[in-house]
Design a protein around this nucleic acid. Structure first.
Lengths: 230, 230
DNA sequence: GGATGTGAAGTAGTTCACAGCC
DNA sequence: GGCTGTGAACTACTTCACATCC
């Protein structure tokens, strides 16, 4: 019985855990029940040592000699990431992107519950997206734990302040806008594909393009340039 | 005339440069021509020292005593990120997300040129998205420098291998799938909102939630929990 | 005076190397 | 024998503190 010590996981570790979990689910689907850090590293694009360090932080999950039991791995990550809890998620901004996200199959994680869709455009309010009716952001606002912002950049800061005032503690911001001045303890993550493209443009012109011996970091993942073994 | 020494910029620095540039553009639009590291730090959610370190890496851009000239800042970042060059970008996978991205106003960066849209679904091939006709990925394939992958996870690896074989050196992957075994020198960035939500869920349950004294990193940006001083 | 740029110090994360356990 | 877990070394990034220059 491995003692549950949540400890303090580093941010890069936290961002890799969902990757390990996803791979675990895929393995389980294929009927594979065991995996070692070398293989998991290969599949996730992470060095084997780093995989071990990450998983060691979840308590002693593995078995020396053998590797990790897939089901244990999945369950433990579930637990650590807080997927046993329930979260109400609202989405603000029902343009092309907002609708695409809500309809995306991998949007809902375990524990997340979509509880409201919002917009300010009278043409959009009242329409249905993924089986929910879009509400008026200006008047109605259900309190929710997480908010996803898909508005234009100019609106994002005001939206963030409003949802935080309504009790939200975690924001996923798709608008190309840095959010500032929010109260301590508000978790914020940015998703900005314009920035991602610019980073790629940098690597194309400088060093890392063709012929560059590139170690590219993304989400904390290193692309290890696997020798095509397997 | 500041001597152009491209040097070697760190990955976190590269990911912050687009943010500074965007803020610079906004300042310019408002007629502001000078900014110092303290203010730029405030606006970008980055410590002033880090701003200076980042910008110092672009050559001596600033002036001691005064700060940075906005137009110089923008131009220099343009140059360093390679936005003076031209890139052909193709997008593979024209589902909800692919269409939303192509139609997004902030999708095209300076230098990027959309040169092809692809799918494998006969119902989608031949339709028009943002003024371009969707091609059949299985048969046609224009060579391009960058590729954006918006397919389901199961297809992503094969798509990546095919575009790389066709000459692509940079990939932006929206599919929830780690890409492995691609040749050295292929730049890859991942955008995965399922992972982002899980990271937020972690912060909600553990430490950083309500009452947590959270320093949350995103894209290398630290949310500095500004004392609401303007 | 005032803000940049940068050596030096500090902190965080990764990788090495191997002891420990199955 | 084999693979995990972890102290120790290393590398990367940030922050401090201040000399430098306008």
């Amino acid at each position: 019985m491995p003692s549950l010590r949540p400890k303090q996981l580093s941010e890069p570790t936290v961002s890799r855990l969902p990757v390990y979990q996803r791979i675990g689910r895929e393995l389980e689907r294929r009927g594979i029940q065991h995996i070692d850090s070398a293989d998991l590293g290969q599949l996730s694009g992470v060095a084997a040592t780093t995989v071990r360090r990450d998983l060691a932080g979840l308590g002693s999950i593995g078995t020396r000699g053998a590797g990790y039991i897939v089901s244990v791995l999945i369950d433990r990550i579930d637990e650590v990431l807080g997927q046993r809890n329930h979260y109400d998620v609202i989405v603000v901004g029902m343009g092309n992107l907002g609708r695409a996200i809500v309809n995306s199959s991998n949007f809902l994680i375990a524990g997340a519950q979509l509880s409201g869709l919002y917009d300010v455009d009278p043409l959009v309010i009242g329409t249905d997206v993924a089986g929910m009716t879009v509400q008026d952001f200006a008047t109605d606002l259900v309190p929710a734990t997480m908010a996803v912002i898909c508005t234009p950049a100019a609106a994002a800061q005001a939206v963030a302040e409003r949802v935080v005032a309504a009790g939200t503690h975690a924001i996923l911001n798709f608008a190309p806008q840095v959010l500032t001045g929010l109260p301590a303890g508000t978790a914020i993550r940015y998703v900005d594909f314009s920035i991602e493209l610019q980073i790629l443009a940098y690597h194309l012109t400088n060093g890392t393009g063709p012929l560059g011996g590139g170690l590219l970091r993304t989400l904390g993942l290193t692309t290890p340039v696997g020798p095509t073994t397997t």
